[in-house]
Design a protein around this nucleic acid. Structure first.
Lengths: 235, 235
DNA sequence: GGTATATTTTGAACATGTTCAAAATATAGA
DNA sequence: TCTATATTTTGAACATGTTCAAAATATACC
């Protein structure tokens, strides 16, 4: 069931992807119409919809693709560095650079964050796979790094970092400063902050804070992890 | 220039607002069409658009209205309580209850948070007035409370609390648990966390963290405060 | 009241995401 | 090669947010 012959459908799919990428990059997500995409791909509107059920799905495709590239890059980074702060910074910077050309339309993903019902939300159930993949990547990064953190927090670090990283992306998307210098500064400053805070998590008087933090993370997670399991009247 | 005679326009506006509220409540924001609103208000589609330039603007109206109610409620709370934790909790709970009937469609406001260009975003320039109003309310709450926090943090507490509160609302919007018990738990837990953390901000070894935090807040603010002043190539 | 101007209302038209039944084409089995 | 089935393509149609020129109505001034 792997790739045998280049099926016609694959070729058409490619055509649509190529056309949409170009248009999205130039005109952004909203301004690009499905009709324009279909036209540029030399096919009818209906054909485009045969391959991608919604306009959203096109963007989701790039998201998935970039996730794979990040995974690859992560391996490279970890081969050279073990200081987790440096690693995380390199990772964020790579995402930053790699996503630069698609920034104009990639934003829709993040922008829809607040609506868990929207399939485009990074918290929605349709993006769960991608989310878990990203969190797994961070987990891997942490495992292979020198991050020292209280054992109560440890199992939730990857999720926390993922949330943090989503915040950075959100900022980046809306950052209109020249070459996004502000985002870079934010990365530096916030990593500094987190680094310092985490290094304190082993102090005795932090016990309460650590526990509260874990509970909050779990509560947040419980809303995203299984959003489609219908109304869990929990206790 | 105050209310003289009930202008025809005011009556029509009221009719639209009433119709839209009912429809939004029953069917939510997306499912409610402008045509349905116009029909329910006994007027043509174009007339509805004469009073509200976009569908969004209708929701924005309720946002503004509820903000006034919150302000009123805040006065009541502060008259009885001075413990800032209790105050904040009461305030959050009031917002929670008061917004309950509009929860189904009020979410669009928060959901668009990620797109600062979207007028519906609570970070956008079109909602700046409302935002400042809300922050002012929190400022007032803090001033009249017993909150003790490091002087470096003090000037930014209201903004921080506002951000925090937006997070809570975001959670609340998407909380499908029975009677939103999860949101209530989140409020308890996170307030506990913040309370503990803030009470530590005066400790000597927190100096670095405090400073970093302030810088991060300022950086975040710089992206929201003047989003329409065109490309500030800052240093 | 009559006329000029401002306000309000209308309905048609447009753009765009999406659906769908039917047509065209490809594929497999005889 | 011929036929049956599966895949792909098409274009028309629909829903809905939005715009707009023209018509209807109200208001103000004589």
């Amino acid at each position: 069931m792997t790739t045998n012959k280049p099926k016609k459908s694959d070729i058409s799919k490619e055509k649509i992807l190529k056309a949409s990428l170009e248009l999205f990059q130039v005109h952004g997500y909203e301004q690009t119409t499905m009709r324009a995409i279909a036209e540029k791909a030399n096919m009818s509107l209906g054909a485009a919809y045969y391959y991608f059920k919604t306009k959203d799905e096109l963007v989701l495709h790039y998201y998935a693709e970039s996730s794979k590239e990040v995974e690859h890059r992560l391996g490279e980074i970890l081969a050279k560095e073990s200081d987790y702060k440096t690693c995380f910074k390199l990772l964020l910077q790579f995402k930053h650079e790699q996503l630069l050309p698609v920034r104009s339309f990639f934003g829709v993903l993040v922008q829809q964050a607040g609506n868990l019902q929207n399939p485009l939300s990074p918290f929605s159930s349709s993006t769960k796979e991608l989310r878990d993949e990203a969190i797994g990547q961070i987990e891997y990064l942490i495992e292979n790094s020198n991050l020292k953190v209280h054992k109560v927090l440890r199992p939730h670090m990857a999720k926390l970092f993922w949330l943090y990283q989503m915040g950075i992306v959100l900022y980046w998307i809306n950052d209109t400063s020249h070459e996004q210098v502000r985002t870079n500064r934010l990365i530096d400053l916030s990593l500094e902050l987190i680094l310092t805070a985490l290094s304190m998590s082993n102090l005795p008087l932090m016990g309460q804070i650590n526990k509260s933090l874990v509970k909050v993370v779990q509560l947040v997670e419980s809303c995203t992890a299984t959003p489609n399991l219908e109304e869990q009247h929990d206790a």
